[in-house]
Amino acid sequence: MTETVKGHLIAPQNSTKHAAELTLGSNGFIILKSEAHQYQCQLDAVTLSDALGSMPRNMTFASGWVFISSDGNKLNTWINRHSKTPLLVRLERNLLLICLATVVTALTAYGLYVYAVPKAAKWVASHLPVELSRELGEQGLTMLDEMGFEASKLEQKEQDKLQLRFDDLINKLKEQGVEFTHPPKMTLRFASDGANAFALADGTVVLTDAMVKLANEKLQLEGVILHELGHVHKEHVMTNLVQTAILSITAAMVVGDSSGISDTLTSIAVIGGGLTYSRIHESEADDFAAQQLYSWHQSTEPLATLFEKLHKQQPVDLPGWASTHPALDDRIETLRHYQPPPQPTAH
């Protein structure tokens, strides 16, 4: 049984069209008829365009002429009957595989986001040269000065006292075997914005005068310093930097562009991802502080009280998902319910 398919021929390397007709034999034999060019051969002697979806396939003959069918379905059906459908095409049509691929993609995206990126960032951060974080820490301080932070207005005597307490704290931690890649330092600053404290890349802990005044009890101040030392201990600043870099690069590579929409979405995703990681870091630092406070004083209450005082000062609370820090209420709650990790029993 033979079939015929109408269509047109295009000359090699030339855009001119010629009407043509293909006779398809049941044994895979092809006869091409056209005023411009005639040819006959077996199906395996022609080059077929790649099979992809239901796209009509073209035939390029050994002579370089290309036949394009005006009834793509008919030609495709005949070709499928006489040659094997490529594996890839069968996979792309397999409903089971498509479902599986969807699940795997979703799980992989989630896994990358939640486990792989933070892990990789931590590893990279701990392998970066120390000079880099030192440089970044100095830049951080310069930036603070440009943002309107001034030298501390506390009395020199009080500053010296604070410095001593900070050193005591560090020694205590070192005795317990807590290690720091960057030796922690403390510096005091005055800012008009109010109570604040943060850690820089090189292990510097910055406290504002207002924070020192707010944390008016010894253990409260210890709590806030421990929180910042938690950031230093876990190298959060550098990890964050690497995480953002990884996220932006991955996002840029994964999301191709079709109408500028993906650009917008990518930047939202990167910002959102950065915020999530930042909140995780805050919780880690809280946990670090809680652990030390609990083992020294059997209570995490001082830090919780300090957070409550901070909470009263804040004018507007952004919703949790849009903030760099977890909601203070939740942090206070977590601190109050802190349970120390079970200690290995010594024999």
Binding site: G53, L91, E92, N94, L97, I98, L100, A101, T102, T105
Partner: peptide, 10 residues
């Protein structure tokens, strides 16, 4: 195209 796209990603 969804089939092609998701298999590409997989």
């Amino acid at each position: 195209f969804f089939g092609i796209w998701i298999v590409n990603i997989l």
